[in-house]
Design a binder for these strands. Structure first.
Lengths: 295, 295
DNA sequence: GTTCCGCATGAATCGATAG
DNA sequence: ACTATCGATTCATGCGGAA
């Protein structure tokens, strides 16, 4: 029986109050970065960022289960030639709230934004900050093991010289690969560097971050029927991935256009699932298995 | 004619005073992390780390040229299940000293230490913090260009009409491109993620970083005959690389065993130079005299 | 069914110019 | 002097239609 996401339209500072304490297993979110996405969101300034975020993180601390995890995707921008310090300040302040700053994963982007400047290179990484309420938390490491051995050797053989120079570490990546290829291969635990590309389709809009990112953290920190929360839902990537992975999901979005789009998406999904159950179309289930490698 | 490194035995808090102000083009160093290498700097505790480092960074600020760069390789350790915050606190304090925190490069380690812990994965990255005295500094970006990706071979083979003119992004993001400008392009600028392997030669050195790391920064931030400083020389990797790249180099090391080893290494190099020096130019000997006068 | 190939898309930043 | 706007610059990827 498919789970249905719980969606809220509104400012998460308000909407979060409707969520019971100690009820969420995993929060994965990518809030609007300072002075970014001005066209869609109001645009939180660099100076006021920490002050703006702290009431939200306070609520997130309340709703998270003691064994749960909060993954925050963020990156500071450059201001007058310097990296801003608001992310560091945010970490320090969140610790005062009671959060533990457990780990910092790195999202190493294979395709980062282009551009050239006289005194800096393109920014190819973002922070994935892990916060917890307690030193003990649920982590299902086996769920994200990646293959190694012959598989990696064969793959490396086919890479160009360029690729060998720039990217021949397969240990930290390999997400989203077809699981059937891994059968019979040895697997190892990944590292704290996640090396994947941003999604850039040539359609109307692309996702905030690639599906593999929430997928990886959902695998790592939750099991089926656990609950995943994204207080900055956007186009609903995290919620959609969680839903397909049989997790309960809660999404909050302040922009009606995004909210309605996600709502439509799940309404139509519900429809197709009904017909799927009736005709049990082979093609659809293969498609789902291939794309998300779940279940 | 080969340059000779200038070596100091002692605590860099003292030894740095012997170096003239505004004389260094690049500082690349990997200081002992908190609670590591206890025998050398007496085991700097996590709590006292910032306090210990600030007098050193103060001196480094003094000796660096206005156009120079300071690259600090550091990573916070885990204390009681949490990442320590001393690196963030250090950045904030160094900014108060007058340093600009220009950029944070990531060293993505291809082969990181093996191991497994119940609630964290292997640590596959370290920070390479870039600090400067001014917004304008020397950066020789062309010296570190890397081969272009394979996509270019096919992509640039036959250009479409839109490729031949400037093609602005449809969404008003401000991006645009003129692909025809790329014809014949074989190299591109790198990103701020440096993806190289740790060296695993079985020498009994503790935690020297791979030669490619200082080499990359020396290429990027200095030219020949510029001066490179490593106040925590260790086994002398940075100094040796700088020397071979025809940069002047200054190394400070507190441990006699390390110091003597590096000195021996360059003494033997000197031997082979003596025979060459009989036909040496005026300029070179003047240079050597000046260097030794500093000691 | 595959593979090939064209194309649109970026959580950007700097410096010059205008108000 | 100080702020706001605008043009220039850049590269790897996934998608979809064609071969």
């Amino acid at each position: 029986m498919p789970l249905r996401p719980e969606l809220y339209l509104g400012d998460c500072r308000e909407e979060l109050r409707k969520i019971p304490s100690d009820s969420i297993d995993l929060i994965v979110t990518s809030p609007p970065y300072a002075d970014q996405r001005q066209t869609t969101y109001g645009g939180v300034s660099v100076d006021g960022y920490v002050e703006w975020f702290l009431p939200i993180s306070e609520e997130l601390l309340r709703v998270l289960k003691p064994t749960g995890t909060f993954i925050l995707n963020i990156k500071e921008k450059v201001v007058e030639g310097e990296r801003s310090t608001y992310v560091m300040e945010l970490i320090l302040e969140m610790r005062k709230q009671g959060w533990l700053w457990t780990e910092e994963f790195i999202w190493h982007k294979k395709n980062c934004v282009p551009g050239k400047w006289p005194n800096r290179f393109r920014d190819a990484w973002e922070r994935l900050l892990q916060f917890n309420k307690n030193k003990k938390f649920h982590m299902y490491q086996d769920a994200v093991k990646v293959p190694i051995g012959n598989w990696a050797k064969d793959r490396l053989k086919n890479l160009s010289e360029t690729d060998k120079i720039r990217d021949n570490a397969k240990n930290g990546s390999g997400f989203g690969k077809n699981v059937s290829n891994w059968l019979g291969k040895e697997t190892v635990y990944p590292t704290n560097v996640i090396h994947i590309a941003t999604e850039c389709n040539n359609k109307n809009h692309s996702a905030a971050f690639p599906r593999e990112l929430p997928e990886w953290f959902i695998k790592l920190f939750t099991r089926e029927n656990d609950t995943v929360l994204d207080p900055f839902m956007g186009s609903g990537t995290t919620i959609d991935v969680a839903n397909r992975m049989n997790r309960n999901s809660i999404g909050i979005e302040i922009l009606p256009s995004y909210y309605e789009e996600v709502e439509r998406q799940f309404a139509s999904l519900q429809q197709s699932e009904v017909s799927l159950n009736e005709s049990s179309s082979e093609h659809e289930s293969v498609e789902l298995t291939r794309r998300y490698a779940l279940r």
